[in-house]
């Protein structure tokens, strides 16, 4: 969610190492990171800080997994990759090696994927030198959900007929002399 960035970040792991000189903290073993709806699972997470502020989060795994709900009424985005780089300031996600991103049935697989979270823009790049697969970008788009035709509703016997329901439309005007021709046509 847009408010995710205002939430504290919780990280749990088996071990951790803090390099104060370079302001790098490395979390190792069954690492889980949570910030609002953002959730990352990885073997290792490296936190880079600049002037005490979080600048970059790198998750490494086989694969590392990430999920987040971009907006209240939107489906959750699921992302995977052996390397996930998350740039907090730019709200940019870079997935590398065995990269995959999926939302609501739409899925993109390739060697590298860049996902601009705020704009919800996905850029995917293949790698022809890749050993497995053809190294191209694969996209799966689910069939669009067409609106089903309005089914004919047969009024059940106990339903109140429409004519009985007073409508807000003006009552039909009383017939005048000019309409006499209509009257003569009536049987």
């Amino acid at each position: 969610l847009p408010t995710d960035r205002e939430q504290p970040i919780h990280i749990r792991s088996d071990r951790a190492e803090r390099d104060d000189k370079n302001a790098i903290t490395t979390y190792i073993g069954n690492v889980e990171l949570d910030q609002g709806t953002l959730h990352i699972e990885a073997d290792k997470i490296i936190i880079n800080q600049v002037n005490g502020e979080l600048s970059k989060i790198q998750a490494l795994g086989k694969p590392a997994k990430l999920q987040q709900r971009p907006e209240e009424n939107k489906a959750i985005v699921y992302a995977r990759g052996e390397i996930i780089d998350y740039y907090a300031a730019k709200e940019l996600l870079v997935l590398t090696r065995q990269a995959s991103i999926e939302q609501d049935g739409t899925q993109v697989d390739s060697e590298q994927i860049e996902y601009l979270m705020a704009e919800e823009i996905v850029k995917a790049k293949g790698n022809k030198d890749q050993q497995e697969g053809d190294g191209r970008v694969h996209v799966v788009l689910p069939p669009s959900k067409k609106k089903a035709p309005a089914a004919e509703v047969t009024p059940p016997s106990d339903r109140i007929p429409d004519e009985a329901i007073p409508t807000s439309e003006p009552a039909p005007e009383a017939p005048t002399d000019t309409d006499s021709t209509d009257k003569s046509e009536q049987p």
């Binding site: 504290p8 990280i11 749990r12 071990r15 979390y27």
Partner: peptide, 9 residues
């Protein structure tokens, strides 16, 4: 062991 960090925004 048993590491739990909380980073404030």
């Amino acid at each position: 062991s048993g590491v739990h960090s909380v980073y404030e925004p």
